[in-house]
Design a protein around this nucleic acid. Sequence first.
DNA 1: TGGTGCATGTCAGTAGTCTGACATAGACTC
DNA 2: GAGTCTATGTCAGACTACTGACATGCACCA
Lengths: 153, 153
Amino acid sequence: MHQASDGIHLDSSLGYALKEASSALRSAMEEALRPLGMTITHYSCLELLAQGPGMSGSELARGAFVTRQSMHVLLQTLERDGAVERPPEDAVGKALPVRLTARGRASLAAATVAVRDVERRMLDGLGDAEQQRVLDALHRMTRSLRADAPRGA
Amino acid sequence: MHQASDGIHLDSSLGYALKEASSALRSAMEEALRPLGMTITHYSCLELLAQGPGMSGSELARGAFVTRQSMHVLLQTLERDGAVERPPEDAVGKALPVRLTARGRASLAAATVAVRDVERRMLDGLGDAEQQRVLDALHRMTRSLRADAPRGA
DNA sequence: TGGTGCATGTCAGTAGTCTGACATAGACTC
DNA sequence: GAGTCTATGTCAGACTACTGACATGCACCA
């Protein structure tokens, strides 16, 4: 019913389009990562660690857009599975740096293959200049939204 | 620690920027709707019903980017609170059209005030032409991502 | 020296969403 | 007419992420 209602006014809303694209990206990534038994936050954490070794749990949480409590439980799982390690003697103040293990790097490498394909598909119809413009616009939007809401995550 | 690690390579990834902007929008909307005791999906459902009266639960789920199971439990709450109604005699096949009540419309009106402000803030630094370009780009990205993954939700 | 503020790590409880499964209604085919 | 496919509604269980709360460590300042 109401096939026409799929696109009336909402399709002209940038906020709705943003949520739509984000949802499509999330679905595609979940689908790509599921065969590997990995969630998006799981993957994001490994990717962040590859680019910034020694990041703390709170930093990883901010980078993956979850709370530090959520990242905490994820890190427990990753540590149990031997993908990351955080030796207590490395502690800097209260922060405890996290590092990838060989196993974690292998896990990330496998996931990267699947994820790269999703991102390639997403960018399929966009030229380089357009990608840059959209990137800039998204950054400005993010900054404006956070200006009035300085949340920790 | 590692303040520099906040922006190395990931800031040049459109996928990451998309997730970042979406996360910022979600946070801002949650913050705006919380005083009203309303979640984003809650609001989305009401907004969809205002624009397309008589939508089915499955249609609402697709429009709000959740599963029809999630929308089902939400509709139970909304119906219990008297925000929506779906008289069994209106059933078209198995689909059961949902409609806003006066109470639901009032609830939506209050939420709209808060949400409009968030969207205004988000678009603050973007010109009209740029908004249109970004909107088009997001739609193309969404379509490309779904091309290979025709999921129901 | 003590106090204030802020960030981090951690524990506990809650809430929203998801996957899996089943039954039903309509459309289409043979 | 029977069979198949698709869409919808619904129930049940599991999971992920969240909010709230507390303790610790460091920086700053009076």
